Simulated assay, not measured.
Amino acid sequence: MTLVKFANGQKNHGVNPFFSDVFDSILNDSFLSDKLASRVPAVNISETENQFHIELAVPGLKKEDFKISLDKNVLSVSADKKTENVEEGKKFSKREYSYNSFTRSFTLPEVADAAKIEAEYVDGILKLNVAKKEEAKIQTREIAVK
Rank of each mutant, 00 (worst) to 15 (best):
Q10G: 04
Q10A: 13
H13W: 14
H13K: 01
H13L: 15
G14A: 06
G14N: 05
N16P: 03
N16A: 12
F19T: 13
V22D: 02
D24G: 04
S25W: 03
S25L: 09
I26Q: 04
N28G: 15
L32C: 03
S33H: 05
D34G: 05
L36Y: 08
A37W: 03
S38H: 10
S38Y: 06
P41W: 01
I45C: 07
S46I: 00
E49N: 13
E49S: 10
N50H: 10
N50G: 00
Q51G: 00
F52T: 00
L56D: 01
A57I: 04
V58G: 00
G60K: 07
K63E: 15
K67N: 13
K67R: 13
I68E: 01
D71M: 09
V74D: 07
V74R: 12
S76D: 07
S76Y: 04
V77D: 01
A79M: 05
A79L: 05
D80S: 12
E84L: 14
K91P: 00
K91V: 12
F92Y: 09
Y97V: 08
Y99C: 05
N100D: 14
N100Y: 13
N100A: 12
F102Y: 07
T103L: 11
R104K: 15
R104L: 14
F106I: 09
L108T: 08
E110N: 11
K116Q: 14
I117M: 07
I117Y: 03
